[in-house]
């Protein structure tokens, strides 16, 4: 009960009502949503999980990562490989997969922090590692190399619920990723209110002052990287068994890393609910743009031969530019304030 109270305490009555209604709608979504809606909703929660993981590093601890695709990809490939090679069910495989993602995160963190590579240079280091691993996987035959790594799925696998092997109906994936994303939210809320959270925010706002107050910068930054890469690794395991196909060019693409940042930037870096809120805006909007173009092509309003694949990214970029210019703290704090969703003085 204490955990629930911790979670609800910052919300106003209006916030609690809206939250409850949203939760019910999302829980009942499989009963009226089409399979297309389900796919989009699953993607939203998946990106919300990755986004929260990224936000923990930059928003909480002040560490900019533009290589989060690496941790997701490592979790995905490791669990998929263990499943194919030795039949280890992902429910167990998640442990070594996440451990590997954390280990790589710690390696990057140690190199960065030990040699005092800060800010944008640390970000470059994360990009470099992500690209490095992409190229390595591209050339490893037992990981499928450029041809991709595939998990076997039979028609029977698409029904029922087999959580241990992550095989089942689309609804299972939806509820699972929803639980994971909301679980990450609860975890972040707990961490932010703990000693760790206080230290992280202090380091984020002023490392030198934080150090003078007795905070070991290396240690607490390493904690942030470990927890963040672990969360991303969990998302990766889900991704592998939801998609059933992994290509290094897609999984480790820097576009995935940037995608991980967008929801948080739009929703509000450093806020708890911002990454989820931002993803809920961006992903459906991107789908709307893509579908809209298809429809316009279908009606021959625009020539069907026109290549407009990048339009979704263009729209997203435009939104990010607007946000950075006019609402640099993100939309969520503003929405919270306008709709009075949080109690005065409480953080979203």
């Amino acid at each position: 009960m204490k955990a629930i109270d911790l979670f609800l305490s910052p919300l106003s009555a209006a916030g609690r009502w809206l939250g409850a209604v949203l939760l019910v709608v999302l829980l009942l979504l499989p009963y009226w949503g089409s399979s297309y809606v389900m796919t989009v909703a699953t993607t939203v929660f998946y990106l919300a999980l990755v986004g929260q993981s990224w936000n923990l590093m930059l928003g909480f601890a002040g560490l900019l990562s533009i290589g989060h695709a690496l941790f997701v990809g490592v979790g995905a490939y490791a669990s998929a490989y263990l499943f194919s090679a030795i039949g280890l069910p992902p429910a167990i495989g998640v442990v070594p997969a996440v451990a590997l993602a954390v280990l790589i995160g710690l390696l990057i963190g140690y190199l960065g922090f030990r040699f005092a590579i800060g800010g944008v240079y640390f970000a470059l280091l994360t990009i470099a590692f992500a690209e490095f691993v992409r190229i390595v996987v591209d050339h490893v035959p037992w990981l499928g190399a450029t041809e991709g790594f595939f998990l076997k799925v039979s028609a029977a696998d698409r029904h029922g619920i087999d959580l241990a092997n992550l095989r089942g109906a689309p609804e299972m994936y939806y509820y699972l990723i929803m639980a994971l994303a909301l679980g990450a939210l609860v975890l972040c809320r707990y961490l932010l209110r703990s000693r760790l959270g206080y230290y992280w925010q202090a380091i984020r706002d002023d490392p030198e002052a934080a150090e003078a107050l007795g905070i070991n910068l290396l240690r607490y930054r390493m904690y942030a990287v470990a927890i963040s890469s672990g969360m991303a690794g969990v998302a990766g395991v889900f991704y592998a068994f939801y998609q059933n196909s992994l290509f290094p060019e897609i999984v480790f693409n820097i576009e995935r890393s940037i995608e991980a940042t967008l929801g948080s930037i739009v929703g509000g870096v450093g806020t708890l609910f911002g990454p989820i809120f931002g993803t809920f805006i961006l992903t459906p909007l991107g789908e709307f743009v893509t579908e809209g173009i298809d429809l316009l092509k279908h009606w021959r309003v625009i020539d069907p031969e026109t290549k407009l694949d990048g339009l979704k990214l263009l729209v997203w970029s435009f939104i990010v530019v607007l946000i950075v210019l006019f609402k640099p703290t993100g939309l969520w704090p503003w929405v919270c304030h306008r709709l009075r969703l949080t109690r005065p003085g409480a953080e979203g």
Partner: peptide, 10 residues
């Protein structure tokens, strides 16, 4: 610190 260093967002 002479040049004050508050944790500005806290």
């Amino acid at each position: 610190f002479q040049l004050v260093k508050p944790f500005a967002q806290m």
